[in-house]
Computed example of a mutant assay.
Amino acid sequence: MHTDAPQPLDVRITAIGTYVPSRILTNDELSRIVDTSDEWIIKRTGIRERRIAAVDEYCSDLCFGAVRDLLARYPGALEEVEHILVATSTPDTVFPSMAARVQGEFGIQGCGAADLQAACAGFESGIQLASGLIAAGLHRKILVIGAETLSKITDYTDRTTCILFGDGAGAVLMEAGSPGAMLGTLARSEGAGAHLLYRSALAPAIAGLPVTPSGCIVQEGREVYKWALTRVPKGIGQLLGRTGLSEADIDWFVPHSANLRMIEAICERSGLSPERTLTSAEYCGNTSAASIPLALDAGVRDGRVRPGHTLLLYGFGGGLTEAAVVLRWTLESVR
């Protein structure tokens, strides 16, 4: 590590919790819906199954489940929370926000609440925003949640997308405290590629190009894949340079679990070890804003992620948007 590396912000993660729906959708089940197979899906994506929300289960319910898990493992964690941020592309309602629903569900008094939408980079964007608010002295304790019910906006006649997406949620508590743990961040977007991955809403076109008005996820998978393999390794190099770290200093790489084959290629191009990479896609599918907290918590629960480890969290996707965080882990494992 370079001696001139920036000093970490006095902000750290002090609790974590996750939730996934009980229903499992396997590759074999999908092969009875569209022209695909378990072998074909695993070979191209590494995904074996994904969790699917019940008909009457929505994004807010997944948020509640993740926060309840956090509370069960870290009793009293919500005391004196001053703000809630929820990253999601699939809210039950545009307003009220999912963050306001969480505030109401858990009776957190005197607490601000807001949703943010940065697609697959949403959770890391939430961490960045929370870190800035805490470092500026505006708040001391913020709950950040990434939650998605992507199955509700997936076209199950389109085999290029329906094999990928699943549902889940993850929550972390961020607090002011020393020693500091936030080592560096990166955020950028390329809106010129917005038409490559979108969910249509009111507008009939994006950047002058007509969109499919189905309300479901639409993507040019090959183009998004090429963009990620170009931009993410470059972003990793830039972020490590800013923090004075090398690839060898990263104990765990936690990328957005879009596609395990994509992650393998990103590791190869960036010099990071696949064996030191945490993912959630194999058994949860691509859960967008929830994929990184799901992967991170799996590592916390089984003891792979330990206090003192240096983590690189990197989200990327619709926008086209990237957001990344390098942090020092300070939280003891609590199952």
Rank of each mutant, 00 (worst) to 15 (best):
V144G: 01
I134W: 09
I134T: 09
C120G: 02
L150Q: 05
A113M: 02
A147G: 14
A130T: 04
A99K: 03
F165A: 06
V94R: 08
T149I: 12
I153K: 09
A119V: 11
I84C: 06
M174H: 13
I108E: 00
Q103C: 12
V86C: 03
D115E: 02
E148P: 08
L133E: 08
T88E: 12
I163M: 02
M174D: 15
L78D: 07
D38N: 13
R51D: 05
L143S: 06
H139M: 03
T149D: 05
E82R: 00
F95S: 11
R101D: 10
G65A: 06
A99F: 09
I42L: 03
H83E: 03
S125D: 09
L116H: 07
A66M: 12
L150K: 03
E79V: 15
M174A: 14
A72L: 13
M98G: 05
P91N: 04
K141L: 03
I127W: 05
V172Q: 01
M182A: 07
G168P: 06
M182H: 05
M174N: 14
A53V: 05
G110D: 10
C120H: 04
L143N: 07
L78Y: 07
K141I: 01
V94M: 12
R140V: 04
V81S: 00
H83Y: 10
I42C: 02
L133F: 06
C59Y: 11
A114R: 03
A66H: 14
I47E: 01
T161L: 05
G126E: 08
G168E: 11
G107W: 06
P179N: 01
A100W: 02
C59I: 06
G177M: 08
P179G: 04
P91C: 03
L164E: 09
P91D: 04
T93N: 15
L150A: 06
F64L: 08
A147N: 13
W40L: 01
I41C: 00
C111N: 08
R73C: 05
E82P: 03
G180Q: 13
A119N: 12
Q103G: 10
A77N: 01
E124N: 15
P75T: 00
G180H: 10
R101P: 09
M182I: 12
H139V: 00
D92G: 06
L138R: 14
A99E: 06
C63T: 09
T149L: 00
L183D: 07
V67K: 09
S89K: 10
I163V: 11
G112M: 12
T45I: 13
D115M: 01
L85A: 07
R50I: 00
Q109V: 15
Y74N: 10
R44E: 13
D115I: 02
V67M: 04
A72N: 13
V81M: 00
A114Y: 06
V86Y: 10
T160E: 09
S131P: 13
R50C: 03
Q128W: 02
F64P: 03
F95C: 10
S178E: 11
I42W: 00
I47G: 01
T161H: 08
L78R: 08
G46R: 02
T161I: 04
G104W: 02
I42E: 11
